[in-house]
Nucleic acid binder design. Structure first.
Lengths: 351, 351
DNA sequence: TCTCTTGGCGGGAACGTTACCACGAATATC
DNA sequence: GATATTCGTGGTAACGTTCCCGCCAAGAGA
């Protein structure tokens, strides 16, 4: 009588079956204090018997903790961001929390909508790659919040997790120098993007350390896409030059586009042109030649963002900015022109 | 007094400010009946003034609808599945619903845990790529549910959305035949996988229609990975053969691995070996030569799955099985050996 | 034996929302 | 002009959970 067939069992169903009050049933199923081992056992058995599953909506309402986290990224279908999502999801699941995932498509309007949905869903916190330059909603957002990605830089009073661009650029440039390309050309993103400035600053720092004038490096801009990279590379190839051309692209998609442009021009990578990318997307592995690149630790960034969010939710310490180290992936797109390379004599450079 | 600073405003805060009862406030903010335009206006203004956001936890508890959907896939970082997730998320968002995303990593144990989390979260329904062969939890799952992927085939009494393998195989085989490869070799998945049988059956059907004996096609098995494809291709190349070798791989990763094996053996694709893949992952575009493949409509599958789930939630009609058509992506990995191809004389085959 | 403490348990309120019902006023119908 | 209908509004219960408080019994100490 107490439990109709099509209703999901509640804690009172469990209590009735175990012959205790719902308070006692709740205690048995949660706290470990003030309860006889024998009573607890009876309740647990009753819960299993009726197929009881705790209603997290009710728990969330009562406790003010929904047990859910929000993740707002530009595009879950983008390999880098899906990697971030995977890391975040894993870390959240390990803590018994669920992840609400949204794609903003780099559209501030869409982003605002998703943030509102997050607030309504009463998530306990959110991880956001902010697309809107202003992010007016921030003050209104009113939830524990961690930013990810380079655009997070704009908001000094919010904790953030990103990749260590400076270290990444150093990694790429060191390799280029070691392989005999002391002043590679640069393919960068649009001037409006903050990431571009960050990248360029890191390059300059590296240059002054080596006592080389940054001005001698050729620079072309483009959108962070395959086509953007292709166009930029075409312009680079159209410039007068002597000998081998080395390129450091600020994004793997652009690097892949650049590689296409090289091939379309009838040249060969890495024989005539060397290319180093930045991101570490899977496609780089299957390109030919394989794309040498500096890989961002997407998954780790996702994990650390969740951990940072936990801090934010629980202790509210000082806001922190975390930069995750990137790592080099050497494949075939970079020719070794260094003096110590025996291959150099044969003029091959093929890897 | 009514609204302390650190509490989020509720509907009674709105009601007090608008000078109405909370019932009226609720009506103004939801139903469009039995309310004066003037009153509604006052309430809406009051809601905006106090920064009211409807609490979906409470709504869900009261209405029995949480407004959330669950998605359980093997790996959100896998390009195909992240595409599915993107489609599902878009469609859900369009209906004002949120998506809880989980990765099972092909582990039945992990899957079971996620399903339990979904039930506890009181999602209104779930989209699942079932990994466990038995899926004992299905009867216990007790939620509206749509399966996706070829493994869904095992469960006749659950609605499912997948790609039309039969049509996809036909597409690939038709192209191979048209380009002068009447009996390509096949690289398939492990014998234990249902998808393998489905693929092979479709090939056989196509063969009988063309009056060719399927037995003349060489077959190699492997895991659905790059290495699996590489090994399979090595074995294929080790077999005695005359002239050009054409291969139809049941998975893009395997196809990419096969392409590597070809290169590692000192042969050239597509001059010596033609390769056609199946999936349509982005990496295929950047490989060299570009991978000709049959693309599964991942995003569409995600969208349709959500739509099917809506049907399941609302009307509960008959269970349905939906097969989404795949589409051909022609790139450079398939040589044209047909009699009508002028290039054939030159012996190039390069695209 | 009486009081005091302790541990186990039940009753009730509260979280924020919406559905249902009742009430009064205004309009429509005869 | 009396009754029926409609419309706008307010009060209240309920969704399922947990927390606080009070109660009772059992044991300890005087």
């Amino acid at each position: 009588m107490s439990q109709s067939r099509n209703r999901r069992p509640t804690i009172v169903d469990v209590a009735e079956r175990a012959g205790v009050s719902k308070s006692t049933a709740a205690r048995a199923l949660t706290a470990s204090t003030n309860i006889t081992e024998e009573t607890r056992d009876r309740v647990v058995k009753a819960a299993a018997a009726v197929g009881y599953e705790r209603n997290h909506l009710a728990v969330g309402m009562r406790s003010g903790r929904s047990g859910m986290l929000g993740l707002v990224i530009p595009d879950i279908a983008n390999p880098f961001w899906s990697d971030v999502a995977r890391g975040a999801q894993d870390r959240a699941a390990r803590a018994g929390m669920s992840l609400l995932v949204f794609s903003s498509d780099w559209d501030p309007q869409v982003e605002a909508t998703h943030l509102q949905t997050l607030r309504r869903a009463r998530v306990d916190g959110a991880i956001i790659n902010p697309v809107s330059d202003s992010f007016d909603d921030l003050d209104r957002f009113g939830l524990p919040c961690v930013f990810i990605g380079s655009s997070a830089e704009r908001f000094p009073d919010v904790s953030s997790v990103g990749s260590d661009i400076s270290q990444a650029v150093r990694l790429g440039l060191d390799l280029l120098v070691a392989k005999g390309h002391p002043a590679p050309a640069l393919i960068l993103g649009p001037k409006s993007r903050l990431a571009r400035a960050r990248f360029l600053r890191a390059v300059h720092e590296h240059c002054v350390e080596r006592d080389v004038d940054p001005a001698i490096m050729a620079i072309e801009d483009g959108e962070y896409t395959v086509d953007g990279g292709r166009e930029a590379m075409r312009r680079l190839l159209a410039r007068p030059r002597v000998g081998h051309l080395a390129v450091f692209a600020a994004n793997d998609m652009m690097a892949l586009g650049a590689m296409m442009a090289v091939r379309e021009t009838g040249l060969d990578c890495p024989r005539d042109v060397s290319i180093v990318g930045f991101d570490g997307i899977p496609s780089g592995e299957f390109a030919w030649p394989g794309l040498t690149t500096v890989a961002k630790p997407g998954r780790d960034i996702g994990e650390r963002a969740v951990e940072g969010l936990f801090d934010e939710i629980e202790h509210k310490p000082e806001h922190r900015r975390i930069y995750m180290p990137c790592r080099l992936i050497e494949r075939g797109s970079l020719a070794d022109l260094s003096v110590h390379n025996p291959m150099r004599i044969a003029g091959a450079g093929r890897v």
